[in-house]
């Protein structure tokens, strides 16, 4: 589904990713861990198309398409969605407008018409209930005045409505208490199926107890230095990252 080859990315002239390789197949959940400043967030931001990242070499292909040639919105409509670490507050734009506009954009790209209102309402109700969110939140401006946990839940709600093929979650666990984490994890797990994939970036093993990955990659100094199954997270939790640094040095 997603193939990243020898990706080099600079931010303001400083090289952050230095030859990253990663392949994600349908149905898989991958987690990227690593120390601060290793470039973890950079990868998902570049895939989503955020400004300020310069790809100096390497390729990203998604279902055979060159991602770097696609507009930001095309990437989203093709099914690559980024759940933000710091969701943006958008005063004046109601959640319900965002959800409907985004869903219709996706449907249009898929050759479907606008979603009929009753169907949309039914869908939204169902997903709100699943995320344990009150309907009144639809009338609020996107993320405005939301607590950290509310913002993260809102990111997952958007994913549940838009059903991405590749969901990228950038530190979706940060700032969550254990109850909120469980709700968020339940949402992400509900997205999993044999046709979809998830790419998570996290600092903590805790998230991986709730969303169990197929593969874990350790990102250090702009490269993936070690990959393994879920047991790798426990090793990292016990020993930190230093031993890997020595191992790869």
């Amino acid at each position: 589904m997603l193939v990243v080859k020898d990706l080099h990315v600079s931010v303001e002239g400083k090289e952050i990713l230095k030859g990253l390789d990663l392949t994600i197949n349908k149905g898989e959940v991958h987690a990227i861990m690593g120390p601060n400043g290793a470039g973890k967030s950079t990868l998902s931001s570049v895939i989503a198309g955020k400004d300020g990242y310069e790809v100096t070499s390497g390729t990203i292909t998604y279902e055979g398409e060159d991602v770097l040639e696609m507009e930001v919105e095309e990437r989203a409509r093709a099914g690559m969605l980024l759940g933000f670490q710091y969701p943006v507050e958008i005063p004046g734009v109601k959640n319900v407008y965002l959800l409907k506009a985004a869903l219709n954009a996706k449907r249009e790209a898929e050759g479907l018409g606008e979603i009929p209102a009753p169907e949309f309402m039914k869908l939204i109700r169902e997903k709100l209930a699943f995320m344990q969110m009150d309907a009144s939140f639809l009338q609020r401006a996107v993320n405005e005045g939301f607590s950290g946990g509310e913002k993260k839940r809102n990111e997952i709600l958007q994913m549940l409505v838009l059903e991405p093929k590749l969901a990228m979650l950038d530190e979706i666990d940060s700032g969550l208490d254990i109850d909120a984490l469980k709700v968020v994890a339940k949402g992400v797990n509900s997205l999993r199926n044999e046709d979809r994939a998830v790419l998570m970036v996290t600092h903590y093993q805790r998230l991986l107890e709730h969303i169990v990955p197929d593969q874990i990659h350790v990102l250090m100094d702009g490269r993936i230095v070690k990959s393994g199954d879920k047991s790798l997270a426990l090793e990292l939790e016990a020993q930190g990252y230093d031993w890997l640094q020595e191992e790869t040095a």
Partner: peptide
Amino acid sequence: DETAVFALRARGIDE
């Protein structure tokens, strides 16, 4: 706010 423009585009809404 350009970050808001990006946030909307990142959900598939055209620029």
